[in-house]
Design a binder for these strands. Structure first.
Length: 1092
RNA sequence: GCCCGGGUGGCGGAAUUGGUAGACGCAGCAGACUCAAAAUCUGCCGUUCGCAAGGAUGUGCUGGUUCGAUUCCAGUCCCGGGCACCA
């Protein structure tokens, strides 16, 4: 009876299919376990031996858990929407639906060959309308939701609209437009279109005009993670910025929860790190600096004024000024005078034609009322303002504010109280004339920054190091910053324009590629350090990104290397605030230095100063704590055909969700895949389709690849449900994926998005868990082992690897199929291509030896190994075990077809423990010896532990050791061999089932009513520790730490006894040379060390 | 530049908590069986000195801690992956 693996494997694959052995029920008393693979994109090339690595690992684990008594869900499906099918359609005209279908059929065949235990009745395909109906449905839930920051969860948009009705948006800052504020009254006065626009700025799925990564060559928009170094990840085509109406997912609202969720999941450190990096949370402060248009005349002459001013207003040393401020400012806000209240009621809510702020801080100065749009301050003078000291104070601040273009209008308490109407009239007149003046001025008034908090003529910067405020030597703002044209001085205009032209001329790619060169230009404007009044020049430079923080930084060259390089390059003097910690050669980003040259911070450790400075800034009203994220909202539309259509219709420019009953919006058939007009997707060409049945026009974008894959793990739980994406009972039962296996390439894309979707579905109450994957294992890549031949230049003559130094040769990839190890099959090579037929060879020892290199497995490198061929030659069981034997799953390693023979030999040897070529089954019912039982139970222990910790390579080697030992013991006993088969089942299910059935069909087995029980449902053997107990140990004896001898000593022996035995040993005596040992270290059960 | 991994025979790799370094397999060498081949089996297999017994040396490198270090610590070099002007 031979090990006929081909026959055995076919037979059992068929049998298992017929019996529904892999069918999984949602209704079971057993504990559940969910093992998931990252489903593949069915490409035209089929699988190579690298692909199944993770699938085999998960299959082993799933089968192992099944033997351990779990109800195991282990499904498979296809991520069948995507670019390649469409690219292929563009080239060949074949419809993506056709090629996708074909590719899936091929994939399934290949997967089945390997003997995976998938429940195919649960197969999902993201391109199937019955699947993407629910992708569209979930999208609509996102569209219908906003993120309530107070409750830290998604809520329905109707809830938000109700809040607006009641209180406007004062308690819910708009994530799409930070400056948008309105009252309940204002909300009610908006027309529907305006209301919809505002709601859009809150929705979790929203459309907006945005700069997107536009790839001309692919004719589509790419997500940030699909762009690498300024070119497309796929194809390497150039990518430029383009403004388009796009859909986005507001993932930034979930940044913190995505970050916190990482604490609860079992992902590798590097995987978590990658996600953290991508989210890019940083804590710091936003600081607003007042500007001066140019260096004030006093700057050059003497520092008198600023010193005087700082004496007056910036008593920083003892913080007296801030205490004064508190007195005049905050208390006043709480206990506003009657006059102030009266005036406020007349001024608020735009009643006088401009927005008025009460008790508003302007660079450390608190105005009673501030009209920022027209640079006007209103002061109401009470009695105390008549005192001499106060008059001086008032004059000084009039002068000071005047420097920043503010005028002060003063009224007395009495005026306001008794002549309210005339005060208001005066005020209105002043406002009107100032407005007109503004409009006629050549330079447009400083209006709000796009994302600003409202301070005009001010520069807001984001910094993580407010403690270095006294080391700020210049400011840098992004070239795109809207302040640039407003603050550039006439003298500097030419230079700035030149620089802006230069920036414009550089493609995204160049900007990203050459990050080392230092460029920039001075605007001629200055910012004022609020603590010491220092005037700080403002520069623009590429190295500051418009999209992050405020698009502006305060540069501290002694502490930041980029700032340092910039200062050196432009000869900007550097202030050292960290004493010896700064050496003048390079910046030192430490937080542990003691601050110097830092006024009231002197002597403080930087780390401690951070919060003190922020507190002060907050008190002064010119700064606040701010958390920033590097992550951007995720672009969610593609100008492509082969993806999910949006369930969205536009009416009058407003996007409306289709009713659930109108889903799915099926992807219409097209015969051409070229882009629509204006670079839209192919759907835009379908004039009929665009018009929606209920009126309005359809969205013509389609969803990106990650849409379908963001929730597929839920669909497997209840794949045929047409009432819901999955029944709540099913999702409650299967819950989180217990084990997820896949490649690291999805670290930030797929994993982050599916975590987001899960959180939203959880928030909305559709599922009961908010992290999809409990544990993630990343399989490594199996690399190709390429082979090379060396052709003499200009000849059809090939030189064996040993002689390549003697000739001038070209190195050519040769198909690994034509090579055995490194030896070229010369005949096969000659037949492989017509031009090689007459090739000549320089051989060594009569052989042609090829060069070898490890590379990525790819068609173009001729190093692809097809699993089908391996399965045909060695069988699926061998293939499965060999892939595992290659090394740790997480690790990348090269494929080596030669090595597979070792595993194959093992399986044949294993077979011979049970069956003999001539005698047939040779298993006996004899009682097992202690030695045999020890081998068995040691193996049980090892296999169980190794499988549980995904150390499949050592498990395979444990099987080999076991087979070798049983072979040495000539053990053919059922008592040993039957449990061993169960151990082997997850790894090599076909051979295990075959032998198992042989054992049970044989006369020596009493079936004990077992019926036709498959080994797939056997129980994992129970470890009996008693068989492993040893009474003695072969102790290694070291002399001074060097291993010299072994002595078998009873494990009961105590130290004195052990010492006696050791010292009596000849070898120990030899090394002692008659001396007495200094010490004898005895570690029970481990080793003995004699120190001389 | 920053952040993660990782460096062990000719090769893939093992050593789970600081305790016999190189399990298991590939390749190689020698032998048995065979007319021969395949298959199978046995032995050897880090380097080095030695006929051998037995030594010396050895886990990228330099130090340290320890009775004892592949394992812990400091520094350094190299390789792989990720991020990359994120203030």
């Amino acid at each position: 009876m031979e090990y006929n693996f081909r026959e055995i494997e076919k037979k059992w694959q068929q049998q298992w299919r017929n019996s529904g052995a892999y069918k999984v029920s949602n209704d079971s008393d057993k504990p559940k376990f969910y093992v998931l693979d990252m489903f593949p994109y069915p490409s035209g090339a089929g699988l190579h031996v690298g692909h199944p690595l993770g699938y085999i690992a998960s299959d082993i684990y799933a089968r192992f858990k099944r033997l351990k008594g779990y109800n195991v869900l282990h499904p498979m499906g296809f991520d069948s929407f995507g670019l390649p099918a469409e690219q292929y359609a563009l080239e060949t005209g074949q419809h993506p639906a056709v090629t996708t279908e074909k590719n899936i059929a091929r994939y399934k065949e290949q997967l089945d060959n390997i003997g995976f235990c998938y429940d195919w009745s649960r197969e999902v395909r993201t391109s199937d309308p019955s699947y993407y109906k629910w992708t569209q449905w979930i999208f609509l839930q996102l569209f219908d939701s906003w993120y309530n920051r107070k409750n830290e969860k998604a809520e329905r948009i109707t809830v938000l609209a109700a809040i607006f009705e009641k209180e406007g948006n004062t308690n819910n800052q708009c994530p799409g437009d930070r400056k948008l504020t309105f009252t309940a009254e204002e909300w009610k006065s908006f027309d529907n279109q305006r209301q919809q626009e505002i709601l859009m700025d809150y929705r979790l799925a929203f459309s907006a005009f945005g700069e997107v990564n536009w790839c001309e060559a692919l004719g589509t928009v790419l997500a940030n993670d699909e762009v690498v170094n300024g070119v497309s990840e796929r194809g390497g085509y150039p990518v430029v910025k383009k403004k388009m109406r796009q859909w986005y997912l507001r993932i930034t609202e979930y940044a913190d929860r995505l970050l916190q969720g990482l604490e609860q999941v079992d992902f590798s450190d590097s995987m978590k790190e990658m996600q953290r990096n991508w989210i890019g949370k940083s804590q710091g402060a936003e600081i607003t600096f007042r500007l001066t248009p140019g260096p004030s005349p006093r700057r050059e002459g003497s520092q008198e004024t600023s010193e005087e001013m700082s004496g007056h207003f910036f008593k920083t040393g003892d913080q007296k000024f801030w205490k004064t401020l508190k007195g005049y400012g905050r208390d006043n806000r709480k206990n506003a005078t009657e006059a102030e209240d009266i005036l406020w009621q007349k001024l608020r809510n735009n009643q006088v034609g401009t927005k008025v702020r009460r008790q508003h801080a302007i660079n450390g100065f608190i105005a009673d009322f501030a009209l920022m749009e027209i640079n006007l301050v209103i002061e109401i003078d009470g009695e105390y303002h008549n005192e001499q000291q106060q008059q001086e104070y008032d004059e000084a601040r009039t002068k000071y504010l005047g420097e920043f273009g503010f005028d002060i209008l003063r009224f007395t308490n009495d005026e306001v109280l008794q002549q309210t109407e005339s005060v208001i009239a005066n005020l209105k007149q002043e406002i009107e004339s100032r407005k007109q003046l503004r409009n006629t001025m050549a330079v447009p008034p400083l209006h709000r920054e796009e994302k600003g908090s409202g301070d005009e003529a001010a520069l807001r910067v984001y910094t993580t190091r407010p403690d270095t405020i006294f080391g700020v030597d210049f400011m840098v703002i992004a070239p795109e910053h809207e302040l640039v044209p407003k603050i550039t001085s006439p003298e500097q205009k030419a230079e700035i324009d030149k620089y802006l032209d230069y920036v414009k001329s550089r493609s995204e790619r160049e900007r990203l590629a050459e990050v080392k060169s230092i460029t920039g230009a001075f605007t001629g404007a200055y910012a004022i350090n609020p603590f010491d009044g220092r005037q700080i020049p403002i520069w623009i430079s590429e190295y500051v990104l418009a999209g992050y923080g405020t698009g502006a930084i305060m540069a501290v060259p002694c502490g930041d290397q980029r700032d340092f390089a910039f200062a050196k390059h432009f000869n900007i003097p550097i202030t050292n605030i960290i004493g010896d910690a700064y050496n003048g050669e390079e910046a030192n980003p430490t937080k542990d230095a003691i601050l110097q040259n830092s006024d009231f911070l002197d002597g403080m450790v930087m780390r401690d100063a951070i919060n003190i400075v922020i507190d002060d800034l907050e008190e002064m009203g010119i700064g606040k704590r701010q958390v920033n994220y590097r992550m951007r909202d995720a672009g969610f539309s593609r100008q492509r055909y082969w993806g999910e259509p949006f369930p969205i219709v536009y009416k009058g420019g407003v996007a409306f969700a289709l009713d659930e009953g109108q889903l799915p919006v099926e992807l219409p058939y097209v015969d051409t895949y070229s882009a629509g007009p204006e670079g839209e997707g192919p759907l835009a060409n379908l004039a009929d389709w665009i018009i929606a049945p209920g009126g309005g026009t359809r969205e013509t974008n389609t969803m990106p690849g990650y849409a379908g894959s963001s929730w597929y793990f839920l669909r497997y739980m209840d794949p045929n449900n047409d009432k819901a994406f999955a029944d709540r009972k099913a999702t409650d039962y299967w819950n989180q994926v217990d084990l997820y296996i896949g490649g690291t390439e999805h670290a930030v894309g797929h994993l982050l998005y599916s975590r987001l979707w899960t959180k939203v579905l959880f928030d909305l109450g559709y599922i009961g868990f908010d992290e999809p994957y409990k544990k993630l294992v990343n399989q490594g890549m199996i690399q190709g082992s390429s082979r090379f031949v060396y052709r003499i230049k200009g000849a059809m003559k090939f030189v064996s690897a040993g002689f390549i130094n003697e000739y001038d040769t070209d190195k050519l990839h040769v198909d690994v199929k034509l090579v055995d190890g490194v030896e070229l099959d010369i005949e096969a090579f000659k037949n492989s291509k017509p031009e090689y037929a007459a090739a000549d060879f320089v051989l060594e020892d009569g052989k042609y030896i090829c060069g070898a290199e490890v590379e990525k497995m790819s068609k173009s490198k001729y190093n692809v190994v097809n699993p089908d061929e391996i399965v045909e030659r060695f069988g699926a069981d061998t293939f499965r075990m060999y892939e595992m034997f290659l090394g740790p799953v997480e690790q990348s390693k090269p494929w080596d077809t030669k090595g597979i023979e070792g595993v194959h030999r093992f399986l044949r040897k294993f077979w011979r423990l049970y069956a003999d070529e001539t005698k047939g089954l040779i298993v006996t019912n004899d009682a097992a010896s202690p030695a045999e039982l020890k081998v068995l139970h040691r193996t049980i222990k090892k296999i169980e532990e190794d499988t549980e910790r995904f150390s499949f390579n050592t498990a395979v080697s444990a099987f080999m050791v076991c087979a070798n030992e049983l072979n040495d013991l000539k053990c053919h006993k059922k008592e040993i061999l039957e449990p061993l088969l169960i151990l082997l089942t997850p790894y090599a299910p076909h051979i295990a089932e075959e032998l198992y059935q042989l054992l049970h069909n044989d006369s020596l087995s009493h079936r004990e009513g077992r019926g036709e029980v498959s080994i797939l449902d056997a129980s994992f053997p129970k470890l009996e520790e008693k068989y492993l107990v040893e009474s003695s140990k072969e102790y290694p004896i070291s002399i001074n730490g060097k291993h010299r001898a072994n002595i078998r000593i009873s494990l009961d022996a105590a130290q004195p006894e052990v010492e006696k035995i050791v010292l009596a040993n000849d070898i120990v005596q030899k090394w002692l040379e008659g001396k007495a040992p200094k010490k004898i270290i005895f570690v029970k059960g481990k080793m003995i060390n004699v120190v001389i």
